[in-house]
Amino acid sequence: MESSPLLRLLWTLLLFRADLSKGVTIASTDQTMITKAQGEKVTLPCTFTFGPQDTGSLDIEWVLLQPNEEQTVIMYNGDRIYDKYKMDGRVEFVNPNPASGDGTIDILNLKASDTGTYQCKVKKPPSVQTHRIQLTVLVKPTNTKCYVEGSQEIGTDLTLKCKSLEGSPIISYYWKKGTGTEDLPATLISNSDTGDLLVKNASQIYSGTYICTASNRVGADECSLELNVTPPINRAGRIAGAIIGTLLGLLLLAFFIFCCLKKQREKKYEKEVHHDIREDVPPPKSRASTARSYIGSNRSSLGSMSPSNMDGYAKTQYNKVPSEEFERPPVQTPNFQPPKVAAPNLSRMGAIPVMIPAQSKDGSIV
């Protein structure tokens, strides 16, 4: 029985498909995800074999797949290597002759920006094969700091803090006491996500060295602190001292303000007095001149009297300075006129001539 033309065509297609399946084959397909730390080196495998029908020129290309484009990393074509692309100087083929069936590459000094999907494409006409690897570059925890938040006194609540300043998530924190593997007291509450270790109702048994370890998928870092729980201090004395210090400060401030205001008033007063010149007010009368005028007038009066009339005046106290009342002019009776005595008669009566000093209008002696 002869086969139909349709059956022969089907057999031909199957044989052709079988021949194609024997073309380029990438063997290292078991590793599709790799995680490394920043600064390290990563090896991306890409080994392959050829089929008998693969007779064209070999072309090996590594690219970094982006959402909208493909960035070439390194190439092998026509027995030449091209690596002046995105990672110039940081990428190389592991085998100097990739045509031998090994297109594996090394990426040196990894950066966080190197994270992405890498594709190895092996092309030897008529066959083409690709293989993809997801690379994740993480930053291991570094610069981890430990410190205590709260008062380290008996009976208080405090928190031991642990935080890495650098590091890719997810970072886990683990606390332990001492330098060994000593477990924490059961009353302490630890949070592995935030790095907090809560200590409630602290007592001296909690004193000691505490070590915190921060870790993620690519590395770990540690820090330590010394917890010293002490008896409470005299809070009343501290409060009283603070109050007294505050009052003294306020008193000093008030005194300083008072001195400044006083100094300002004195300067203002001196300035006003210095400019306050009054030309229409006469100077005050001199009491000394008034007293001298009074004494001189009395002496002239005494000189004009006889010795018999001196008895009443001898009892007058001339050692006293007259008061301001003597400056007032005597009240004279309109009809009374003092008797006039001639000069010769005054001499016969024993009077002594006295020179009366002249006075200005304001009462001062000329």
Rank of each mutant, 00 (worst) to 15 (best):
Q31H: 12
T32S: 15
T32V: 15
M33V: 13
I34Y: 10
T35L: 06
T35N: 10
T35S: 08
T35F: 05
T35K: 05
K36I: 12
K36S: 14
K36T: 04
A37T: 05
A37V: 02
G39I: 08
G39N: 08
E40P: 00
E40N: 12
E40R: 15
K41W: 04
V42P: 01
V42I: 04
V42A: 09
V42T: 08
V42M: 05
T43D: 06
T43I: 11
L44D: 04
P45A: 14
P45M: 14
T47I: 12
T49D: 09
F50M: 10
D54N: 06
T55W: 08
T55E: 14
T55L: 13
G56D: 15
S57L: 15
S57H: 07
S57V: 13
L58P: 00
D59G: 03
I60K: 10
I60H: 00
W62L: 01
V63D: 04
L64K: 15
L64G: 06
Q66P: 12
Q66V: 03
Q66W: 01
Q66A: 10
P67F: 11
N68V: 07
N68I: 07
E69V: 05
E69N: 13
E69T: 06
E69P: 00
E70R: 13
E70C: 00
Q71Y: 11
T72R: 11
T72W: 03
Y76V: 04
Y76Q: 01
N77Y: 15
R80I: 01
R80Y: 07
R80N: 14
Y82C: 01
Y82F: 15
D83N: 13
Y85W: 10
K86F: 11
K86D: 02
K86L: 10
M87A: 11
M87L: 15
D88Y: 07
D88Q: 10
D88M: 09
R90L: 06
V91W: 08
V91L: 05
E92C: 05
E92K: 09
F93L: 04
V94W: 00
V94M: 09
V94C: 02
N95R: 01
N95H: 02
P96G: 13
N97D: 06
N97V: 13
N97K: 08
N97I: 15
A99H: 06
A99I: 12
G101A: 03
G101S: 06
G101C: 06
G103M: 09
G103Q: 13
T104F: 00
T104P: 06
I105D: 02
D106W: 13
I107C: 08
L108D: 07
N109V: 01
L110Y: 06
K111L: 07
K111V: 00
A112V: 02
T115S: 14
T115F: 03
G116V: 05
G116L: 01
G116E: 01
G116N: 05
G116Q: 10
T117M: 14
Y118H: 11
C120Y: 08
C120M: 08
K121L: 12
K121P: 02
V122Y: 07
V122H: 03
V122P: 10
K124I: 10
P125H: 11
S127P: 02
S127D: 05
S127T: 04
V128T: 14
V128P: 04
V128A: 14
V128E: 14
Q129Y: 00
Q129F: 00
I133H: 03
I133R: 01
